[in-house]
Nucleic acid binder design. Structure first.
Lengths: 239, 239
DNA sequence: ACCTGAACACCGTTCAAGT
DNA sequence: ACCTGAACACCGTTCAAGT
């Protein structure tokens, strides 16, 4: 029997798949990737799933939980070294940090969720555990490693946020790199116009302050931290 | 002539003082201190001033500008050393960083505004300029100092955010310290319940991971960074 | 020039009602 | 058990109208 005219179902595809937490998180990440973290509202995610915002509350307790679930799912994309190599602990630690940064920045400003959060999800814990293992294997004292894993995480988050901040100012369909260069020129012009008697160092160091891309800056700070951590190793094999 | 009944003015005190940008920023910081950054909405600030939200747009272009003005005003509370002492450049740099952290954390989660922002306000620029001056006086190469001032700022912001995150979970009128201890016990219990075969290092290092208060953790990371920065000084006077 | 009311297009979350 | 519509108490920003 054909449906009588004027009695069409309200939604084109009534999404016969039942809602699950996984589907909610997936939809949320789709919105994140397309429009950024701020656009990930309960209403927008529900729309993506062809339902209303109230339906999500059967699968996540609130928006904050959804954000943390998104973060841990993204953290699942991080590829950790299959075998920890104690001889290369500093290099492997740097590789992990760079990989986390790469994964985070590939999902817009997801790093904002991580900032200041104690990791509890399975994937975030796996990353922290491997970092701790590497430092212990490298001879970093337990107390220092315990503090350093936190500092390292904070640094990665902060840098990922900074990175997406610069590249996210793109509103239209401009070339991202060209847009970034233009922004940099504006910053330089602003700093150059500052009173040199009040801000002598900034004015004198404009080029040094705006040098290097995001990746270079990240490597620099990461290296600072690792030098510092290595300085705590009793019998310094590489310091 | 007395006002006829039923013709009372709509607001009790029509705030005879004219609105200025300064008054708007002041009111916004009052809301920040009392209720946190998230409560600083255009509507809430307007309410504080006894007017409507639309009135604010004559003095700030939008909410983001208001937030940046709030940040720079807060940064004005930072007390910088009156005289830079090149011989004590590392100590003075640490003092400034600690002072910025102290001021930020005394204004709830204002550090969130700073995170990932290129400083343009007069007070933020003054802080950055002094940091640069100290590093240059200490013999840190210009290129390194230019990168390090950024890294240092990121670290301070991240730590201040983390700090307020832990102490801001206080909803009611509990003792903050007691509340924090309870939260820490929960975290420890959660970590202790993790499968030791999957997260061997976390389970083994629970005490090291949750050791130390906020200030101690901050000092640790700050020291890591300063050790790293000092390692770039050509003729190392104190490394 | 500054201020305002009203409106627009949004929010997160709850809850009684449905299946 | 899961889903829903409707409602509640909010958002930032714009704009025509007032003084």
């Amino acid at each position: 029997m054909p449906t009588p005219p004027g009695r069409r179902p309200r939604r084109p595809a009534p999404s016969r798949q039942p809602l699950t937490q996984e589907r909610v998180v997936e939809a949320a990440i789709a919105v994140l990737d397309a429009e950024g973290l701020e656009a990930v509202t309960m209403r927008r995610v529900a729309q993506e799933l062809g339902t209303g915002p109230a339906s999500l509350y059967a699968h996540v307790s609130d928006k904050q939980e959804l954000r943390e679930l998104m973060l841990d799912r993204v953290a699942g994309e991080v590829r950790l070294p299959s075998e920890p190599d104690p001889a290369r602990w500093r290099e492997q630690l740097k590789e992990i940090a760079s990989e986390v940064r790469r994964v985070y920045t590939s999902h817009r400003d997801i790093a904002k969720v991580s900032m200041g959060l104690i990791p509890t999800g399975p994937n975030l814990l796996a990353i922290a555990d491997m970092e701790l293992g590497l430092m212990r294997a490298g001879g970093v004292p337990a107390r220092i490693a315990g503090l350093a894993v936190d500092t390292l995480g904070m640094y990665i988050d902060a840098d990922a946020i900074e990175d997406t901040f610069y590249t996210a100012t793109i509103t239209g369909d401009d070339d991202p790199w060209e847009h970034f260069q233009k922004y940099l020129r504006e910053i330089r012009a602003y700093m150059a116009a500052l009173p040199a008697d009040r801000y002598p160092n900034i004015v004198a160091m404009i080029d040094d302050l705006t040098a290097g891309g995001g990746a270079e800056r990240f490597e620099f700070g990461l290296d600072l931290l690792l030098r510092g951590i290595a300085s705590y190793v009793e019998d310094r094999p590489d310091a």
